[in-house]
């Protein structure tokens, strides 16, 4: 019988994070093969090795808003976001786990790791004015 301690919860988080994200990505790839287009862009453009359709032309909010339309790239983007979020959640659970053990030095250390992650995900991109350019997507794929 499994013990419901923190290690067990962390193990489950990691496992289900990967399973959910890979499932979303697989759905996206399958949908792409059925539809032959994504976010209004044609197959050839998306599959080219030097394709300009990268993360700078796809605003995440726009991609997610197309989920109900069963857009292939929406599923893939969501899957990739879940994948990146999995280790972040793991670190957050680590803070809670050390706090439960009342190990304040490691609560602090883990919090610094978490702050570094937040720096990379939110703070630095906004300082550097790195925003996805939706106009470029319209230009590349007029039917989006």
């Amino acid at each position: 019988m499994p013990k419901w301690d923190m290690d067990y919860v962390i193990g489950l988080t990691l496992r289900y994070g990967v399973i959910i994200s890979i499932a979303l990505i697989l759905i996206g790839v399958a949908l792409f093969h059925v539809k032959g287009e994504a976010l209004g862009c044609g197959e050839a453009l998306i599959m080219s090795p030097t394709s300009p359709i990268n993360t700078t032309v796809i605003p995440p909010a726009y991609a997610l808003s197309r989920l109900p339309n069963l857009d292939p790239l929406s599923f893939i983007i969501l899957g990739l976001m879940v994948l990146i979020a999995t280790p972040v959640l793991r670190v957050a659970l680590g803070i809670a786990s050390f706090a439960m053990e009342r190990d304040w030095l490691y609560v602090f250390i883990t919090a610094v790791v978490f702050i570094n992650l937040m720096l990379a995900i939110f703070v630095l991109p906004s300082i550097m004015h790195l925003h996805a350019n939706a106009q470029l997507l319209k230009l590349l794929c007029p039917s989006s």
Binding site: I25, V29, I46, N54, V57, L80, V91, L117, P125, M128
Partner: peptide
């Protein structure tokens, strides 16, 4: 995993992630 998540978040904004390629 944690190191790669940090790097890929920045790579995401720099536009080095081509979603379809990364998916496959």
């Amino acid at each position: 995993g944690v190191t790669a998540a940090t790097g890929s978040a920045l790579y995401w904004y720099f536009g080095y992630i081509q979603p379809m390629m990364a998916a496959v």
